[in-house]
Amino acid sequence: MKIGIPRAFYYHFYPGLWECFFRRLGCEPLVSSRSTQKTLEAAAHRTESENCLPQKLFDGHALSLMESVDALFVPRIHSIVKAHNCCPRFGALLDATRAGIARGMPLVSIDINETAMPLSKTLFRLARQTFGVRRKTAHLAVKEAFSVMHRQLAGEATRQQKNCGQPKLLILGHPYTLHDHFIGEPVISKLKQLQIPLERMTFEDDNIVPGDILWCVFNKMYRKLQRTDTRACAGVIQISTFNCGADSMMTERFRRICRHKGLPYMLLMVDEHTGKTGLDTRLEAFADSLSWRQTEMAK
């Protein structure tokens, strides 16, 4: 059985996990190719016009898989960290996909709700009940999938924390915007081209203190910003996407923290029409002002 996994939302929350898990169950996982302008254009006619950019990309990815797979994997996500919740969009993701773009397509689904049940147990149940594999196989599949994911996340984290002796630029965003080839990659590759040392936000640490921010991703970003040492951080770039409700709420708060700490902060809003030139200009200007600031401070 061929299972399609859209390279969007949950693919980036749990890197490597889904492919490994489904392969171990004897299925053939197929991950959609990286997002491009084409992905978006394909979705544009079918998706809800008021959706946020990542949701449109998700729809595009799902559409690109429809022809070539037997079933699509779309979970319903309530919380990915215990005692926290996610964007309300994820609660309706499965039902909206079923009623919308993937109409008539068989869907493989689970409820990701860490508050009620850990993901490993949910996956174990999926393997036993939907795929009917033996207890031992299911157990091994879950175990190996998680170890693959943890290795990837840990690798990413150590790569980010490598010290280069210079203050780094912190890039904030959701896992699915930072790692997306349409949203986050252009920003990161441009910064690399400008030879600016940067640190991409990582989300491997699940031991977060429940605070007043219930959205887990934002709670992690918030803690990260609060802990950031102003001497080791040159500035913050927040990648936000058009019509993201959660971002509209939280970026103001992050801006406030940065102002308080004296960190330069830039909000980059990415939408479907983002031209490369505009992005380049803004990043170059920000890089320039950062370097001036550093020379001023060094004096």
């Binding site: 008021e50 949701q55 309300p88 309706a92 039902d95 909206a96 009623a99 919308g100 019509n243 409700g245």
Partner: peptide, 12 residues
Amino acid sequence: AGCMPEVSIRPI
């Protein structure tokens, strides 16, 4: 415009 829950149920 942009209401998180209500927009996401529109396809439904």
